[in-house]
Amino acid sequence: MRRFFDRHPFWSLVIALLVAFFIWAIFAPWPPGMEAWAGRKKIFLNAVFNGITLGALYFFVASGFTLIFGLMKNVNLAHGSLYMLGGYIGYEVANTTGWWILSFVAAFIVVGLLGIILQYVVFRRMEGEDLKQTLVTIGISIVLADIMLWIWGGEFYQILAPGWLSGPVELPLVTAVKSSGELVYLKYPIVRLVILLAAIVVGILMWLALNRTRIGMLVRAGVDDRDMLSATGVRIQRVFVLVFAFGAGLAGVAGVVGGTFQSIAPGEDTRFLLASLVVVIVGGMGSIPGAALGAVIIGLAEQIGSVYFPTYAVVLTFLIMVLVLAFRPQGLITSGR
């Protein structure tokens, strides 16, 4: 970060000013003149919060994707299917037991087990054959999508959050000032905030696990040079299986999250596969902080875009990806070196 500042003082200043303006726009009550050209503050705040919470969901999906890619250099294009499977399993569990929390555990375990099977049966046999792995995962995603369509049909499923999480909560953010001088505060669904919090906690835990534990050390060493790591006597296949299971399990958890604040239906798999692709391309392959940054940027771009220029929202997301590719093909945050 300091190196970036030293190299590009002008751009750092521009970015700092933009971020400062953004933070001011979130916290300060808007002067009357501003609402004339920027619309109501409530809409803006809602877009920002929706964007950040959507970013939290994207982070859940993309962090597993980027972890698997970073370590094993294979692109698991069935990741979206794992996400959707997690959502369906979460729905079934939440529906039969009535325990919302339990659905996360179930989705994590079942999808993680599927990940282990995938790693053993598929990826282990074609290590280093990039194209073959990609094609096989495409095939798997076609098959999985059709099996899920077979079992659950084409309906929309929504996982209901428990009672204590439903309803809005008032946030200490002023959206407007009434003529009487009374301040109006933002109301926001509590479940989304809890999920945002959970994403932050998971992100920090993952960062700690990667940087402060022995397993994390092995994973990081594997990302840098897996041949050298296996030459030092580490059983790298075990690390692979572990990471694959964890990444797949995260996708399953993301499915439950997505099923709670959006819905699960056929087609969501490609949508979230693409979202995680874009997030990972923008943030930087194989980097957890990169996935977090990319997820927030893409989530914000999608939501703010869909509020202020609805027709071109997708193009905005795409434009960000193109700009990143043009100026920093390796992504905003590169892992390691």
Binding site: L135, V136, G139, I140, I142, V143, A145, D146, L149, W150
Partner: peptide, 12 residues
């Protein structure tokens, strides 16, 4: 409707 399953398995 299981056409895609057939295609997917054949492809695999």
């Amino acid at each position: 409707e299981r056409f895609n399953l057939l295609i997917g398995i054949g492809f695999l």
